[in-house]
C-alpha cells in the first residue's frame, strides 16, 4: 500500500443533550492509505457518520464537542486549524458524498451552479472554464445530455441522478480523499449497482482514496479492501475484507454476518438474530459496548473495556475472548495494530 494520507487518532466526539452527554464516538483510531478504499460499517447510532463528519469538521458546536483526538491530513491536524484553513480542505482536498441526495442539494440553485461553485472558489477558475469542467464532470458520472442538465434544478432529477450530481460535486476539485456516507442507501438496487460500478472505476483510474460508510455489508465487498467495524462508538474489529467476511473474530461481526440470509438458505433454517438492542450512549457501558447482547460475555466484559488483539498483520479485534489469556503478548492498547 501507498503512504498514509489520513490518520485519525483517539477521536472522541460528544453531544450535549437535555438528558446529559451522548458519547457518540469513543476513542476511534484508524488510517487510510493512498488509493485505498476503506469501509466503516456499523448500525445506526454506532458513530460511523459522526466520525466522518468529524473528519470534515461538519459537527455543529455546540451541541457537539471534540473531547480528544486528532485527524492528521497532509501533515496537519484538521481539528486544530482555523475555520478559514478548513474551508480550503473541505470540498477541495477532501470531498464528501452524503446519504440523502434529496436533501443535500440546494433546491434553489441550478445543478450547474452547484458544481461550478467549488471550482470557482477553490480552483479559482473563470466562470466559462468552470462551466466547461462542470459539463465534463456530469458526463463523467454518466448523466446524459449534460448541457441541458446544467440548467436544471434538483427537483427535475431522479434520486439516482441527484446522487451522481453529488458525486460530481465531490469530485470537482480532484480530492485526494472521498468520504461517501451511505451513498447508495436511498437508491434502488439496479441504480446502486450503477453508482458502485462508477465509484470502483473512479478509484482504479484516479487513485482517489475512499472512505465508504455503510450498514450494507454487500456493498462493502464490492468496493473496499479493508473493513472497520464500529459498535457503540468504538471500533471493535478491523481487517481486510477477506478476513472480516471469512474469518470474523468479534462476536458482533460474526453476529452481523449470521443474521443476513444467504441466497441458498432454506426457509426451515431460522436466521440467527443478535438479540437485544444497542446500548444507550448517554450512559455508555463501562466495559465492552456489545457485552449486553453478546452470547459469550464473561464477567470481565462488564467491567473493563477490552484491549486490542492482533489476529494477523492486518486484522485486529477488541474482545476479551481473544486477549484474556495472552494479554501481555498481543495488546496494542488503543492503537491500531497495523498502523
Amino acid at each position: 500500500m501507498g503512504k498514509t494520507i489520513l490518520e485519525v487518532r483517539d477521536l472522541r466526539v460528544s453531544f450535549e443533550v437535555y438528558g446529559g452527554e451522548v458519547e457518540a464516538v469513543r476513542g476511534v483510531s484508524f488510517h487510510v492509505c493512498e488509493g485505498e478504499a476503506v469501509a466503516i460499517v456499523g448500525e445506526s447510532g454506532s458513530g460511523k457518520s459522526v466520525t466522518a463528519q468529524a473528519i470534515m469538521r461538519l459537527i455543529a458546536m455546540p451541541p457537539g464537542k471534540f473531547k480528544s483526538g486528532s485527524v492528521i491530513f497532509e501533515g496537519r491536524d484538521l481539528l486544530t486549524i482555523s475555520e478559514k484553513e478548513m474551508q480550503k480542505v473541505r470540498g477541495n482536498k477532501i470531498g464528501m458524498i452524503f446519504q440523502d441526495p434529496m436533501t443535500s442539494l440546494n433546491p434553489t440553485m441550478t445543478i450547474g451552479m452547484q458544481i461550478m461553485e467549488s471550482l470557482i472558489k477553490h480552483q479559482r477558475l473563470r466562470k466559462s472554464a468552470a462551466k466547461a469542467r462542470a459539463i465534463e464532470l456530469l458526463a463523467m458520472v454518466g448523466i446524459p445530455d449534460p448541457e441541458t442538465r446544467m440548467k436544471q434544478y434538483p427537483h427535475q432529477m431522479s434520486g439516482g441522478m441527484r446522487q451522481r450530481v453529488m458525486i460530481a460535486i465531490a469530485l470537482a476539485c480532484n480530492p485526494a480523499l472521498l468520504i461517501a456516507d451511505e451513498p447508495t442507501t436511498a437508491l434502488d438496487v439496479t441504480i446502486q449497482a450503477q453508482v458502485m460500478q462508477f465509484m470502483k472505476e473512479l478509484q482504479q483510474n484516479t487513485n482517489t482514496s475512499i472512505i465508504l460508510i455503510t450498514h450494507d455489508l454487500g456493498v462493502v465487498v464490492d468496493l473496499c479492501d479493508r473493513v472497520i467495524v464500529m459498535y457503540a462508538g468504538q471500533i471493535v474489529e478491523t481487517g481486510t475484507k477477506w478476513e472480516i467476511f471469512k474469518n470474523p473474530q468479534h462476536p458482533y461481526t460474526k453476529g452481523l454476518l449470521k443474521s443476513l440470509p444467504r441466497l441458498d438458505q432454506p426457509k426451515n433454517e431460522p436466521l440467527i438474530p443478535i438479540y437485544g438492542t444497542p446500548p444507550d450512549m448517554i450512559q455508555p457501558p463501562q466495559g465492552c459496548g456489545f457485552c449486553s447482547r453478546c452470547e459469550s460475555a464473561m464477567r470481565i466484559c462488564e467491567r473493563q473495556d477490552p484491549e486490542w488483539t492482533a489476529i494477523s498483520e492486518t486484522q485486529s479485534v477488541r474482545c476479551w475472548l481473544q486477549s484474556a489469556g495472552e494479554k501481555a503478548a498481543a495488546v496494542v492498547g488503543g492503537k491500531e495494530a497495523d498502523a
Binding site: 434502488d188 439496479t190 446502486q192 449497482a193 450503477q194 464490492d222 467476511f245 443476513l260
Partner: peptide, 26 residues
Amino acid sequence: ALLSAIPIPDPEAEAKKERIILRGEL
C-alpha cells in the same frame, strides 16, 4: 438484472459473479 445487482456479503461469491449493469432508469 435485478438478481445480479444484489451485492453479496461474501468476497468469494462476489468475485465469481457477473453483474448485469442496466442502462438508464425506470
